[in-house]
Design a protein around this nucleic acid. Structure first.
Lengths: 215, 215
DNA sequence: CAGCTCATGTGAACGGCTCTTACATGAGTT
DNA sequence: AACTCATGTAAGAGCCGTTCACATGAGCTG
């Protein structure tokens, strides 16, 4: 990672040089520390070493910074899901389970991003790019669903969109309710990953799909 | 509904008479209007006609009011789910689907409560009563799951807790992602209700359960 | 009914936050 | 070398949460 003149501690001149990026990183750190509600524009400015008014040169307001963090989050999210799916190789069923795990892993390991994306109340339609980034992430899931149901006999294929929505909702629900290991809202007799895997397994079985490569 | 001396517009004396309740109602209205983040203690006080310091006689701070709203929400939620379940009558399968619909209906129709319960970042362990109210609501779902899997042959019964968690997560995920009809985060080709019903159907089928009363 | 007490209200104030406006700086261009 | 304009600062208005000293009056006690 590298940016023009911000990583070091050397005194900066009147101009920061990379304030926009610095603010985003500060926002992530603050969200990770105190949640999306605890994050303040002023503190991000402080932690970047500029006056409280400076951020307004780069973001219309606090919400726009939050929306930008969410947008970046969706881009990373898409990458993570795509990497997990890996074009359905070596085997779609296995790959699909991997996507589920990646969903939960992202929610846990990139919790600041996840927070901005889903818990900060950022309206999805605030920014077309945000909207599109979200759509692209979902598209990965949809692609997976499509590949999976292709195994079913033509007569009994459910709509891929519906299957993707079900899996997404289940993953999202589990991540929201039991996502963080420690700060979880409720204690569980099993890990979130196991819960999701079992749920998807049962669901796919309900569709008539089996995990083994018999079909 | 009735309270001692607050509903009317008659001038009140130095003391409000029912400030605590008035604040809760004001909070609900504000959350419904501007989301849990937009709700302010000061405005709730204003709308109850008292000074900004008055609420502190009834709640330690803003978060405690929010937590109280969430607690009341869980109580209502439990009632709604219980009514929908109706002891599994006339038929557990039908009743269980009714519970799912009730979940979504609550998220939509009581969105201010739902917001406080799940989207406001209120820590569940903030208050033991809040915790317990949440547990009681979940217990309804669990009871439903228990009754349903009792239909299965003894050898292939999954843990009721797991089934309940799956259904809860799916419901919660759908409600979070597509809950509000209008202000939904994403457009759908079907209603949230249909999506949930189909999902639960597929899931139960995966468990080996059929909707008709054959078993 | 007189007097007391204490829960519940008020007013004023502190510090912090968002956001705006007028002004300062200096990097890049001509 | 001069100019321009993106990017910074300072100051301040208005809001919020929260606290503290003080006011009020509802309900008990005698």
């Amino acid at each position: 990672m590298s940016w023009s003149r911000d990583g070091g501690k050397g005194p900066r001149g009147y101009h920061h040089g990379n304030l926009r990026e610095a603010l985003v990183r500060a926002a992530l750190a603050l969200i990770a520390e105190k949640g999306p509600a605890g994050f303040t524009f002023a503190e991000a400015a402080r932690s970047a070493g500029v006056s409280p008014a400076a951020p307004y040169r780069h973001f219309r307001d606090r919400d726009e910074l939050l929306a930008d963090v969410a947008r970046r989050g969706f881009v990373l999210f898409e990458e993570a899901l795509k990497a997990a799916w890996n074009d359905g190789k070596p085997e779609p069923f296995v790959a699909f389970e991997r996507v589920g795990k990646a969903y939960l892993a992202f929610a846990r390991e990139q919790h600041a991003y996840y927070s901005a994306m889903f818990e900060a109340g950022v309206p999805l339609d605030a920014d077309p790019e945000l909207q599109q980034a979200g759509d692209r992430a979902f598209a990965v899931l949809r692609q997976g669903a499509e590949t999976l149901i292709a195994r079913l006999p033509a007569g009994q294929r459910p709509p891929a969109l519906m299957v993707a929505l079900h899996v997404w909702s289940l993953s999202h629900g589990i991540a929201s309710l039991f996502g963080r290991g420690d700060a979880a809202r409720r204690k569980l007799p099993m890990s979130a990953e196991e819960l999701l895997e079992a749920g998807v397994l049962v669901y796919l079985q309900g569709l008539g799909l089996r995990g083994d490569a018999t079909k």
